[in-house]
Design a binder for these strands. Structure first.
Lengths: 141, 141
DNA sequence: ATGAATGCAAACTATTTGCACGCGC
DNA sequence: GCGCGTGCAAATAGTTTGCATTCAT
């Protein structure tokens, strides 16, 4: 948490109460939160904070790599603290992002991409479906 | 192309001139098109067609699996005919999506996911960076 | 003290929707 | 002829932005 704040100032950005709170909220969650969810939690702590600020800071944080953004087609973007490097099983039922310990960007695939001459900037692997809990619920209708 | 139309009626949907034209436009492109691009091309063929129709049909086509949708964070969603199953190297410079012949959803990774009890609905692997052509352009500033 | 960050509201972009009409089956 | 599909315009969702003010450094 303090590390995150340091990273902010290291990039030349100021440490404001708003940023502190946004980072706090993110660090207390173990799943991808929508801007709305983040905004709600933030407002519970300090009601005066505007959505615009939340948006601005999430963009900023995503840009410097502190948070990662998940763009599902349905609904708004979702954010979470960038846990180094992770891929997820995202449940369409409950929204939980289950961490996957492995990364597809290795072995044969990595080699193929490197050999193609493409300069990799980032990669994204995401599996959507239903977690065990939601499977039963989803099947009945 | 006729196969695509068949697939539509097989799912109980009517074959309208609009749908015919949208599919024609998609089948003539080798890259992911935004709705705006699709709309423009469609209107060159038949000016009366409304964007709403384009949206409605792209959603429909995506649902029955005829087209695939690409959700970059920047800007609108992009669509292309579903070429079976593909992953891409998306260039941040020129926007081209270079097809990757291989799929990460196999071997060890597939096994791990299956064993976790997660019910996979779909998966998405996407690499962003710069294609060879754009690498030089991008490096100079 | 200076410029970066904020709050507010208005603007904007992408997409969806309600309704009356038109057309494929 | 029935009902799905369409065009239009208005509505909505998500996000960004201009501007005056506040605050971190």
């Amino acid at each position: 948490m303090t590390g995150l704040l340091n990273e902010l100032s290291a990039h030349g950005y100021k440490i404001t109460p708003q940023r502190r709170i946004i980072l706090q909220v993110l660090s207390e969650s173990c799943r991808h939160l929508s801007v709305e969810e983040i905004g709600d939690k933030v407002k519970q702590i300090e009601p005066g904070i505007s959505v615009a600020t939340v948006y601005r800071n999430l963009n900023l944080l995503a840009e410097i790599g502190i948070v990662s953004r998940l763009d599902l087609h349905e609904g708004p973007a979702r954010y979470e603290l960038n846990q180094g490097h992770d891929h997820h099983l995202v449940c369409l039922g409950c929204g939980h992002a289950i961490k996957l310990g492995v990364c597809p960007m290795q072995g044969e695939i990595k080699k193929i991409i490197e050999e193609s001459g493409f300069e990799v900037n980032s990669h994204h692997f995401e599996v959507t479906g239903y977690c065990q809990e939601c499977q039963t619920r989803h099947r009945k209708p």
